[in-house]
């Protein structure tokens, strides 16, 4: 009897875990030059290897999360952490609506909520550099950013989707790491997004929000052909951490797990 109880508890723990966490993919470390001159133009940035969720967190994933953490239901969340736009298009606090595809990426979530979700599966939001490093890949190359056809394709997809709800995640083709929809499905929260718009040394606090104005962030770009990235950064720059947008979702990263070879 005791053994059975133990087994049940064990099975529950294992299954609970499987349901709550996605199969993360390895992004081996490397060096790259960011399109944003955050730390000096053209300075190569060293990225340690990490693991990333293959698709943005889905509405279905998010429902599981708020059932387990009801303080993140839209009718219970603190106004400190989420504004009135939080999950605003949902039919109810625990229902996205009868016609909604649960595989769609969840949007209308604040930065605070996205962080809490990732913490709930022992992960965190990626840093901008981690996100940009991973998003530079295509299905054959780790850094495909200098391919003009690729940039055009991303921009074209992005424009075609403007004004429509994001489709199901993971429908397209995986990149070289096994990640989907990094560039064109939704914009994604990154952990240090707000600090990207802070003046380099804050000695001049009156000007520190200069890049915080929508579009102004484009001034910080080294490579002005990266329009899709510019749109993304401009969108993030307009957001406060408790704000939500129908175009902004997220995915999580975590440290490289032991035993996996990069």
């Amino acid at each position: 009897m005791r053994a059975f109880v133990l087994w049940t508890v064990f099975a529950f723990a294992v299954c609970g875990h499987a349901a709550a966490s996605a199969e993360y993919r390895v992004v081996p470390g490397g060096t790259f030059v960011s399109a944003l001159s955050l730390d000096g133009s053209g300075a190569p940035v060293k990225i340690a290897g990490f693991e990333m969720r293959p698709v943005p967190v889905s509405i279905g994933d998010y429902l599981v999360f708020i059932r387990a953490h009801p303080e993140w239901r839209r009718d219970r969340v603190s106004p400190l952490y989420a504004d009135s736009g939080y999950l605003a298009s949902w039919a109810g606090p625990l229902s996205a609506g009868p016609d909604v595809d649960l595989r769609q990426p969840v949007t209308e979530v604040s930065w605070f909520a996205a962080r809490a979700f990732c913490a709930g599966e022992n992960g965190r939001l990626p840093s901008w550099y981690q996100w940009e490093f991973a998003a530079a890949a295509d299905d054959g190359r780790r850094d495909a950013r200098d391919d003009p056809l690729r940039s055009e394709r991303i921009l074209h997809t992005l424009l075609a989707r403007t004004g429509h709800a994001p489709g199901a995640a993971g429908a397209g083709r995986a990149d070289i790491y096994g990640l989907y929809d990094m560039n064109a499905l939704v914009w994604e929260w990154v952990d240090d997004y707000a600090a990207m718009f802070v003046n380099a040394d804050a000695r001049d606090p009156d000007r520190q929000n200069l890049l915080g104005f929508c579009g102004g962030a484009a001034l910080a770009f080294d490579n002005r052909s990266a329009y899709a990235l510019m749109m993304r950064v401009a969108a993030l720059s307009a957001m406060g951490p408790a704000d939500s947008s129908g175009n902004i979702g997220f995915r999580c990263v975590r440290d490289m797990q032991q035993g996996k070879q990069p």
């Binding site: 060293k46 605070f112 802070v198 606090p205």
Partner: peptide, 26 residues
């Protein structure tokens, strides 16, 4: 506890630069 979340409620944000210093607002 989560000092970054607490800071964000105050509107304070930072990121560590490669030289070890921080970009932050006041």
């Amino acid at each position: 506890g989560d000092v970054r979340a607490f800071a964000a409620t105050l509107g304070v944000f930072w990121r560590q630069r490669p030289d070890g210093n921080f970009s932050h607002n006041v």
